[in-house]
Design a protein around this nucleic acid. Structure first.
Lengths: 258, 258
DNA sequence: ACCTGAACACCGTTCAAGT
DNA sequence: ACCTGAACACCGTTCAAGT
């Protein structure tokens, strides 16, 4: 069996090479933390496509290859950056989870997850690329699992329930984040971009009958509602649906074994 | 207001430059269709990261710049490739939708969508990048909207319902597709990769209590169940949940106005 | 232990030139 | 109308060398 390449930075034997983060002053003041921080800042500002090791190095006032003393590859660095933004997730402590209603808790977790994805659109394509076993990712997973366990759903069905909620939020946040990025790049507000796109594009006649919601959206935006308001509203409807769906599954399973 | 860059290949004024697809023979036998086909083939075989205009050109037995006669940019080409794989979606005709039960139809659409995303993992990051208004994408959207309209849900809530189902499938398929790609790259079966990852990684003790499902998965795989079987099962649970959720929302809205 | 510079094998795309 | 070749301004990463 071929030895697979390292699966994750988080599985690296951190004792092999020195701590990579020093208390004492380096010549350039570099360490993993400062590098990761600068990476996130650059990714937020300029996007994944424009990010490069050379660009990062110049931002840090250092030569391109200096960074490689602290990280093995660009991929490792991106994995570190990914977990770093997950630190922004608002995660309730286990006791707080147990004290609250799962419906509320689930909505809260969905909301914080969505916010982080939308705020950092570059993480969406990254999340699929890594195992997501960084410390902050684990803290979030833990909370998710604890909340869903509190629904009373059987263990086997909990995975499906978690997937339906958080893959939805992932997909929704991804589209949202990308759209915001496109608007920013085009120098347009979300509403203006939406209007321009709708003006440029005509649904083929024979399909018009089935695109009534699109028409409704156009009408709403023209009526003064913002694209963001509509997206918030749709998100809430979806969460209502998901919570109701979980309740239905729980009811269908019958009373939990004591 | 700054004139935004072209929003989509599909909005390009195709009359400006000649049809780009010729009946008669080109010196190299190139046309948009052949180029798009080769692009999909390469992306499937080697992934988005390794795809390049030069690599494509050499596959077509042509110089790198020849391709630029038929497409303006690499981005445009990727947008064409995206809609081309959507041709693989099994989309029921409007009459077929009207004749069937929306529950079944919705499951069918979710299944075909998932299959395409998993088969072509490179499309996930692309879908967010484009407006998805190609002909095949529209055909699918049309069917989705028609099916969800048949649930009896109010027009405003239909968007939330569509999002909950298809953003879920997008997220789920994305993770699945990426996982398969990682396995293929590591030269391991999905089950072996899963086992190796689980062996390499230990959940921190203080969190063990909340990671019972992960334990359950490990036990199931050791018991001979395949990772794919479990994913199929979870997918079905999620669809059950979503269908039940839609039914609950419909019931909560009360009888539809005639 | 940490950082640099030169070099290798790549990119997407422009532009002038060929047929 | 279609295709090529050279060139520009980039990449990630290796490797030998400096301090």
């Amino acid at each position: 069996m071929t030895k697979a390449a390292r699966m994750s930075v988080w599985l690296e034997d951190s004792a092999v090479r020195a701590p990579r983060t020093r208390r004492s002053e380096q010549p350039s003041g570099l360490d993993r933390d400062r590098i990761t921080e600068a990476t996130v800042k650059l990714l937020d500002a300029e996007g994944l496509a424009k990010f490069s090791m050379r660009r990062l190095a110049s931002e840090l006032g250092v030569t391109a290859m200096s960074v490689y003393w602290y990280v093995d590859t660009k991929d490792d660095l991106l994995e570190l950056a990914l977990d770093r933004v997950f630190a922004e997730l608002t995660v309730p402590a286990p006791e707080a989870v147990d004290a609250g209603d799962w419906r509320e808790q689930l909505r809260g977790l969905a909301a914080t997850y969505r916010a982080v994805i939308v705020r950092h659109p570059w993480i969406s394509p990254q999340m699929g690329n890594y195992l997501n076993i960084g410390p902050n990712s684990l803290l979030f997973s833990r909370a998710v699992q604890r909340v869903v366990a509190a629904t009373g759903l059987s263990l086997t069905r909990q995975r499906g329930a978690i997937a339906s909620v958080f893959q939805f939020v992932y997909g929704y946040g991804t589209i949202e984040g990308h759209f915001r990025r496109r608007c920013a790049e085009a120098g347009l507000s979300q509403d203006d971009y939406f209007r321009e796109a709708m003006a440029a594009f005509r649904v083929p006649e024979e399909m018009a009958e089935d695109f009534r919601q699109a028409e409704e959206m156009v009408a709403a935006v023209e009526g003064g509602q913002t694209v963001e308001e509509m997206r918030d509203a749709d998100f809430q409807v979806a969460l209502d649906l998901l919570v109701a769906g979980i309740e239905a599954l729980v009811a269908a399973e019958g009373p939990a074994p004591s």
